[in-house]
Amino acid sequence: MTPADLSRTVLHAVRRAVDEGALRAPVPAHARVERTRPGGSGDYACAIALQLAGPAALPAREVAALLRDRVAGAPGIGRVEITGPGFLSFTLDASAGAGARAARVREIRELGLRYGRVTTEAGRLHRLHHPREVRAAVVAQSVARLLRTQGGRVSVGCTGAPDPRWQELRVRTGPRHAPGESAAIRPVPAGATAAGLLDRLGRDAALWGLLRPAAHDHAPLGDDLLVQGESNPLFLVRYAHARARALVREGARLGVTGAYEPSADVPAPALHTALADHPGVLAAAARRQAPDRVARHLEAVADAFFDFHDATPPLPAGDEKPSAAHRSRLALAEAAGTVLAGGLFVLGISAPPHL
């Protein structure tokens, strides 16, 4: 069960409680579910009871109890507890883990780059505007892509005359006075022009350098962004994607088709967790207008992919016969490559199949 699955389960419980008259409160558009912090209880936590307590005119723990009774026993959930002032803490059902992991890999492979995209922002228009500065323009365009992954409509406008070379960074301007929620994008300036960055770093490295740091941090834009080695996170992410694609091609040549089977569950917890977190990362990055969260998440996926790749090679070696284990590993590798490509797309960075 993914955070998105848990969110849907919680919202369904809220609707049930409202329909049954046990809870008098508006049903929220979404329920935020996050991994439990170190030392906390369970695998995931949700604060929706605290959000509903005011409108329902009930103590948060009482609201949490109403929801717990309607969530307990749902497929994939082993235990639900009420902690603190009214948090719902979920412990997943370990026995259902293999089936859930298989379902997630199938979902990623079926949806492709659409994995993690939702419609919670459908019909909502966001108007982003930024100063005539290259980093602000690039961040605004990436935030627009993130909001679109949530179903939102976005216009991006520049408060000054656009830099003529921004188009090479796929920065587009939109109507300056479109209706909708307005937000100013003002990260720490890059201290460089689009022309200077493109000529020295090229498009992909320039975008990564501008987007990887948090907006309130300085953006390091040195030549280390061009290093073809593990010390360069951009290279590591793109290489992980290229390696995943190479495994799929080689699997096809050997007649090994990726098909994740619960009976051949792959022991790669870090990679499974990173793939499951992808929808939540997109949602949080869109909500906080923080594409740097996507970049850091891609680094985590790449690191986990290489750990899995080295520990459990996806393809048979030598005279080894293809097995269900190889099919599951190959399917997991393909899913990792898909998530990496989708994340790079949100950042506007290419994901070449060969490096």
Rank of each mutant, 00 (worst) to 15 (best):
Leu234Glu: 02
Leu234Phe: 05
Leu234Asn: 02
Phe235His: 06
Leu236Ile: 09
Leu236Gln: 09
Val237Phe: 06
Tyr239Ser: 13
Ala240Asp: 00
Ala240Gln: 01
Arg243Trp: 12
Ala246Leu: 12
Leu247Ile: 10
Leu247Tyr: 11
Leu247Ser: 09
Val248Tyr: 05
Val248Ile: 11
Arg249Gln: 09
Glu250Ala: 15
Glu250Asp: 13
Arg253Phe: 08
Arg253Leu: 12
Leu254Ala: 09
Thr257Glu: 13
Thr257Leu: 14
Ala259Tyr: 13
Tyr260Arg: 06
Tyr260Gly: 10
Glu261Ile: 07
Pro262Gln: 10
Ser263Lys: 14
Ala264Asn: 07
Ala264Leu: 10
Asp265Tyr: 04
Asp265Phe: 09
Pro267Glu: 08
Pro267His: 08
Ala268Cys: 11
Ala268Thr: 06
Ala268Ser: 13
Pro269Met: 05
Leu271Val: 01
His272Asp: 05
Thr273Pro: 08
Ala274Lys: 04
Ala274Tyr: 11
Leu275Ile: 03
Asp277Ile: 12
His278Asn: 00
His278Thr: 06
Gly280Asn: 00
Val281Asp: 00
Val281Trp: 03
Leu282Cys: 08
Ala285His: 05
Ala285Thr: 03
Ala286Ser: 10
Ala286Gly: 12
Arg287Val: 13
Gln289Trp: 14
Ala295Lys: 00
His297Ile: 04
Leu298Thr: 08
Glu299Phe: 15
Ala300Gln: 14
Ala300Ile: 13
Val301Asp: 02
Ala302Lys: 06
Ala302Gly: 11
Ala302Cys: 10
Ala302Met: 12
Asp303Lys: 12
Ala304Lys: 00
Phe305Asn: 04
Phe305Pro: 02
Phe306Gly: 01
His309Lys: 09
His309Glu: 11
His309Gln: 06
Asp310Ser: 15
Ala311Phe: 08
Thr312Gly: 11
Thr312Ala: 14
Thr312Val: 11
Leu315Lys: 03
Leu315Met: 01
Leu315Cys: 02
Pro316Leu: 09
Ala317Pro: 03
Ala317Leu: 15
Gly318Cys: 00
Asp319Thr: 15
Glu320His: 01
Pro322Glu: 01
Ser323Leu: 03
His326Arg: 05
Arg327His: 10
Arg327Ile: 03
Ser328Asn: 02
Arg329Asn: 08
Arg329Ala: 07
Leu332Trp: 00
Glu334Ser: 15
Glu334Asn: 09
Ala335Gln: 04
Ala336Asn: 07
Gly337Asp: 01
Val339Ser: 07
Leu340Thr: 01
Ala341Ser: 13
Gly343Cys: 02
Ile349Cys: 07
Ile349Val: 05
Ile349Lys: 07
Pro352Glu: 03
Pro353Asp: 07
His354Gly: 15
Leu355Ser: 12
Leu355Asn: 08
